[in-house]
């Protein structure tokens, strides 16, 4: 159908790029979410006043463009601290913190959405703070936070394209390399978009599946 110079090897090259995007995203979303939950709970628990320093640091991660964070973090870790770390590690580290900064807000919002009266009811039954958190707050806050969290995960996946700046060859970078060589930008970008779609679609579907399952109560 298309008259293209794209070979099977090139496709595999693209798939590898997609794999890299997927891995960087998965690692960052995983650790970012864990950190985000910890930061979010701390922020909620100690109140806005005491949490101000933490909020400030998280705000920095949220407000400085990711590209700049990557370049600065890379320079800082390799040049200033003198560690020999791969661009992949820097990419995962920065993206995790970036995810955590957003996730902390989502988590805090989720916790705040759980009515105080329900938590009092749980504590009145003799449940400990931890039992209240795991049996009442976690499930209810998850329901509230899920759509935003899915949005965050998809956003991080797209933002992960920027990690090319620290020499990580992910999907978009692989595509660019091929474009330079084959000079077929539109066709290659279409394939690239298809790969992004294939990664995102299951995540989005999974999100709506959970939402549907939870909507019975």
């Amino acid at each position: 159908m298309f008259d293209t110079a794209l070979t099977t090897n090139d496709l595999i090259f693209l798939a590898k790029g997609a794999g890299m995007t997927l891995i960087v995203t998965a690692i960052s979303v995983f650790f970012g979410t864990i950190l985000g939950i910890i930061f979010g709970v701390i922020r909620y628990q100690i109140g806005p006043w005491w949490a101000a320093p933490l909020t400030f640091v998280l705000d920095i991660f949220r407000s400085i463009p990711l590209l700049i964070q990557l370049v600065l973090a890379n320079a800082f870790v390799t040049t200033v601290l003198g560690f020999r770390v791969s661009g992949f590690a820097v990419a995962c580290g920065v993206l995790s913190l970036y995810t955590a900064a957003y996730c902390a807000e989502i988590v805090r919002g989720g916790i705040e959405a759980v009515p105080q009266t329900l938590r009092r009811a749980a504590r009145s039954l003799g449940m400990t703070w931890g039992q209240d958190m795991t049996s009442i707050v976690l499930p209810l806050a998850t329901r509230v936070a899920l759509p935003s969290w899915i949005g965050l995960a998809l956003g991080v996946m797209k933002d992960s394209a920027l990690v090319y700046i620290v020499q990580v060859v992910e999907l978009l970078k692989s595509t660019q390399i091929l474009i330079t060589r084959l000079q077929e930008p539109l066709f290659l970008l279409m394939i690239c978009g298809l790969f992004y779609f294939l990664i995102s679609f299951p995540i989005a579907r999974f999100g709506s599946y959970l939402e549907k399952r939870w909507s019975n109560d």
Binding site: P115, T117, L118, R120, A122, G126, M127, P139, L140, D217
Partner: peptide
């Protein structure tokens, strides 16, 4: 035992689970 004015039910649990939860946990 204490029962408040409103918003007492844990909405993500069935009636049975609501009544079982603290018995099991506490």
């Amino acid at each position: 035992g204490i029962v408040f004015q409103q918003w007492n039910a844990f909405p993500h649990l069935t009636v049975l689970e609501n009544v079982m939860l603290a018995q099991v946990k506490v």
